[in-house]
Amino acid sequence: MKKLLEIIDLHVMVGDKEILKGIDLEVNTGEVHALFGPNGSGKTTLISAIMGFGGYKITKGKIIFSGKEITDLPPYERAKLGIGISFQKPPPVNGVKLKQLVELCARENGRLIERYAKELNLTEHLEREVNVGFSGGEVKRSELLQLLVQSPQMVLLDEPESGVDLENIALIGKAINLLLGRKVEPKNGRPIKQVLKEKRKSAIMITHTGHILDYVEADYGHVLVGGKIVCGGNPREILHTIKEYGYNECYRCFTKEEG
């Protein structure tokens, strides 16, 4: 498997506080990594630093994407290299229609806009202002629509199920699988296995509740506590442990590592 994203000893400060205290993470092509952790552990900070947003100051370490160091690149250059993000709470953009934004995201996938919008129940939303008056579920579906046409190699998903009612989670899950190339049909007589291999995208997916894992299969799980990855392994087992014992169990690992 080819290494797509490599994070080495990443330290990030927000304001004058160090939030990430040395993160090491590798994501290969086609892998989906689930990121767990209590509130304030640094999950959003990690993906914000990967995307390159201002206000997240990298004080040490580096980020390598497709063999290229991107630690100091602005967000749009990272986007052009193939990193995309679904925001947990994206800002409303007044006066800009979703269609306009999606067309700007699309670059070469313009012809797919209508189809994806239909699949995500967003056809009418194309004429509405981006995130203005959108419900929780509509916000998430609109994020996924933008990503579908943007078609990045590496997708950062910040709590794709938060604020989404149960009925809509299945739709969100379906859209993520489509985005990550995890649901494909045999094409032009070629075996599914081969098509999958070509299409598969990588992802880091933050999940608080783990609900999304019922729909999207993650290959690895990591637990972030106090700005460090304290645990890694089978995502279902990790989720099970958290559900059973709470993050207290993770704190024990954290303390052990600190000590």
């Binding site: 967000p75 749009y76 986007a79 052009k80 995309g84 700007l104 995201c105």
Partner: peptide, 13 residues
Amino acid sequence: AKEEIEYLMARGL
């Protein structure tokens, strides 16, 4: 708002 600019920059603008 800086947040709005970065939102769009994350889409490649």
